[in-house]
């Protein structure tokens, strides 16, 4: 039995404080991109190695590299000397993995969270996206592609406010 001075639970706690660079209210855990955390100690090493396995969100999302770097920095700053970030492609990330807390944070931040599940293909049908500000269902799509790869641009017909919608993926 190896004696680890770092528990996996502690690493998860640290990860909860690493935020997405584009949507800074969301942590990497809210996004659902951390697949696994392992802490290992080999015989001739005195510091445990922490391996964080993540999965990329959008294929062309420039933030993916930055997220990996932020995770590494966050753990290094907490005094974990050996950090290994692994990227796995399978299974492919989907917006269904955004946690309910994450969806609530998005809404509070002014971004409408994904409507419906991505796997049932309904994400391309004419969906109703409630306004994150006033809650009205009377909203319209302005542009299917928004300020980042993950968002579309909507406008509320009641409060007239334009807002971002986190697309199903």
């Amino acid at each position: 039995m190896v004696t680890n001075t770092i528990s996996e639970a502690y690493v998860w706690e640290l990860l909860a404080q690493v935020n997405d660079p584009e949507v800074p209210v969301l942590s990497v855990l809210d996004l659902g991109i951390v697949r696994a955390v392992t802490v290992s100690l080999t015989a001739n090493e005195n510091a445990p190695q922490v391996t964080v396995t993540i999965t990329p969100t959008y294929t062309g999302c420039p933030a993916t590299d930055l997220i990996a770097m932020n995770i590494r920095l966050g753990l290094l700053q907490a005094g974990i000397p050996k950090v290994n970030i692994q990227t796995v492609l399978s299974p492919a990330w989907t917006t269904d993995w955004i946690t309910p807390e994450g969806a609530a944070k998005l809404k509070a931040y002014g971004i409408a969270p994904p409507v419906g599940k991505s796997l049932d293909n309904a994400y391309l049908e004419d969906i109703t996206v409630p306004c994150p500000r006033c809650g009205s269902n009377d909203t319209q799509l302005l542009s299917a592609f928004g300020s980042t790869a993950c968002k579309a641009l909507y406008q509320c017909s009641d409060c007239k406010e334009p807002f971002d919608y986190f697309k199903c993926h």
């Binding site: 990329p56 959008y58 294929t59 062309g60 492609l89 399978s90 299974p91 492919a92 990330w93 989907t94 991505s118 391309l124 299917a144 592609f145 697309k167 993926h169």
Partner: peptide, 13 residues
């Protein structure tokens, strides 16, 4: 399969 599944959602848009 994973790369295809991810790109498929984007290509649908």
């Amino acid at each position: 399969a994973a790369i295809a599944a991810k790109s498929l959602k984007e290509v649908t848009y």
